[in-house]
Amino acid sequence: MNLKNLSLATALLAGSFAATNAQAEEPVTVYTVTQHLADFAERLGGDAINVTFPVPEGQDPAFWRPSIALIADYQQADLILLNGVDYAQWVRNASLPRRALVNTARGLDDQLIRTDTVTHSHGDGGEHSHASTATHLWLNFDLATAQAEAVFSALNRELESDLPDSNLDELKADLTELNQLAEALPRGHEIITSHPRYQYLADRYGLSIRSVNWEAGATPTEENWAELDALLDDQAAKVFIWEAEPATAGDQGIQNRNLNSVVFAPGDRAGTDSDFIELMRQNLAALQAALEAE
């Protein structure tokens, strides 16, 4: 073999090694159904993974329905992080590979909150009921920690290597800090929320929360105001929580009723500037201020 052939063979061999390494280092593809799970995955997996949360800004991920092409993208993912408890309703009617599914609420059944019951019948089958479960479990930061652990474990399994434990430890430390902030919120004040999404926050941190059922960001209608007034007639409240920035008229209407208006974004939607931890810090600080205000 002459020198030219030898250098060609060496170059080919080097190229082949480089291709193999590139293939081995190809990031794991992760799709999620909420922004908070996407944030967890990004913090835990770092550069080893590619995280996609395809729900467009302004859409509620719980009720969004993907196109067939997007479902195909989900099907191609290495991991699909689910919130469980029937959040992201499209999942229950979609075909997704079980090997990729990670139900981050698995094993948390005894800590979930049951909500309204729907009763109906089918043909001669007689009436029957099915209870629903409150879905925003990550607003109890203990449960958010359990979800983070589930994500970490799934990523480790998929990557077939050990991610640094410090990734999980740091996230858990941040969630512990959120727990402390939430536990420090003043108790004994009535809170009304624009949507029934805060059951876990109320339950875990001893807050008294009731809800109306308003569309996020929309100007409340006469019917909406009547619903709120009925709640206030029943029992006065101090704070009104919006899940998204309210319309001016809406905010004005709240202030006219002597309620302290505060935005507490649940963290499941796309489009926030901060990551989950920072968003919750801002939420809790704003809520604390509203509860302490005169």
């Binding site: 009763t119 019948s121 089918h122």
Partner: peptide, 11 residues
Amino acid sequence: DNQVANAAITQ
């Protein structure tokens, strides 16, 4: 608080 639906729900 229960919601009661008609027995003639379409299958």
